[in-house]
């Protein structure tokens, strides 16, 4: 294949792959931010295709449309962040499954299954120091373990 055609072919394939991966991420993840990132990934896949076609047709329009896509993505990010912040304020978490009132009439409610205990999730122990002074009057769990941050 000539250079230009092979370049176009490969760029379209990479763009398609990015689009597909973004699609899978958008429909499967529950974290609102990761969902948004997957949507942006779909936009990046489309941008790659646009730039490749722009080069193939020897036209700047491809690159300029991607520039406009970047501008629009910035607007979308601003508004999406505002809404995500509002949703977080009301529910206290970034979970898309929390908002169940938008489901359809015949759709059952989504119940979260309890997670199996995972190795590596043990609470962190405090570092051990040489005992000195008076022992504080605190329950044993608080001395031994602490939450993250």
């Amino acid at each position: 294949m000539p250079y230009e055609v092979a370049l176009l072919n490969n760029y379209l394939l990479v763009g398609a792959a990015l689009f597909g991966i973004g699609l899978v991420g958008f429909v499967s993840r529950r974290n609102l931010i990761v969902m948004f990132l997957s949507a942006e990934m779909m936009l990046q896949g489309v941008s790659l295709s646009l730039v490749a076609w722009g080069r193939f047709h020897n036209d700047f329009g491809g690159q300029l449309l991607v520039l406009f896509i970047i501008a629009v993505a910035a607007c979308e990010a601003a508004v999406a962040l505002a809404m995500i912040t509002m949703l977080f304020r009301r529910s206290g978490k970034l979970d898309a499954a929390h908002w169940q009132t938008l489901r359809e009439a015949n759709q059952p409610r989504f119940h979260e299954e309890p997670l199996p205990e995972e190795f590596g999730d043990q609470p962190l122990p405090w570092p051990r120091l040489t005992p000195a002074g008076i022992q504080p009057d605190v329950p044993r769990e608080k001395i031994d373990y602490r939450p993250k941050v």
Partner: peptide, 17 residues
Amino acid sequence: AAYDRVSWEAMLAAATG
């Protein structure tokens, strides 16, 4: 968090992809 460790319909999502 807990909602990061379980995704919705992983098999269908992969099939869609």
